[in-house]
């Protein structure tokens, strides 16, 4: 465990909690892509099946349980409790265009052809693109609430910090996981455009809105 990995995990946790609290406090999930949230719930579920097979540390187990719990709570709020506020008309990204290729790739490129490992690989690939429905929704409506942009910022920051963590681990532990690294680079790149808007607009006190 190094400082980049820890701050990455905490940044991820911050993102998840910010989103959950935003929805809970405002009693509204307007502007939030339910599809992205379902994909993230699927990511955590398929990745953390090892909760049942191996114990790594109390920290590891606790974080996994929190991530899974929060992601399902978010999905529950969007599709059940606060369904009336869900902006389904703007959440039109076709997720099958992500799930099918990602599933195929997980079968073809993995560390080990075993069910648990294929599901882990699937979750890594899926996570790298799971935010696309949310970004698509923002590009469609042309704007995002400031709190939503904070959520996206911490979510992107988490993966960027993980990239530094992997460089660190490569140098100091000789550890590297090519699948995680390539997917992590792709995931981080997807946030670059958003990071630019976040720094140039949101941090200067303006609302994130795109030119029509």
């Amino acid at each position: 465990m190094n400082i980049f990995r820890l701050t990455g995990d905490l940044s991820h946790l911050a993102a998840i909690i910010i989103l959950l609290l935003k929805i809970w406090k405002s009693r509204s999930c307007a502007g939030i892509s339910g599809k992205s949230q379902v994909l993230f719930a699927l990511v955590f579920t398929t990745r953390y099946l090892d909760l049942l097979t191996s114990f790594i540390s109390l920290y590891n187990t606790t974080m996994k349980v929190i991530y899974i719990g929060c992601s399902y709570a978010t999905v529950y709020l969007i599709y059940m409790k606060l369904k009336a506020t869900y902006d389904g008309n703007h959440d039109t990204f076709r997720v099958e265009f992500l799930i099918v290729p990602v599933g195929g790739l997980a079968f073809l490129v993995n560390h080990d052809f075993s069910p648990l490992e294929i599901l882990w690989t699937f979750s890594i690939y899926l996570e790298s693109v799971a935010i696309l429905p949310q970004l698509f929704m923002i590009s469609k409506t042309g704007e995002a609430e400031t709190i939503t942009t904070h959520y996206l910022f911490f979510l992107g920051l988490y993966r960027a910090l993980y990239l530094i963590n992997w460089i660190w681990r490569f140098y100091f532990e000789g550890f590297f996981d090519m699948i995680a690294i390539v997917a992590g680079v792709v995931q981080t790149i997807l946030y670059c455009d958003f990071f630019y808007l976040y720094v140039t607009k949101v941090l200067k006190g303006k609302k994130l809105s795109l030119p029509a």
Partner: peptide, 10 residues
Amino acid sequence: WQRGIHHDEL
């Protein structure tokens, strides 16, 4: 590549 199978990250 084998090392990746022990997944200790989140």
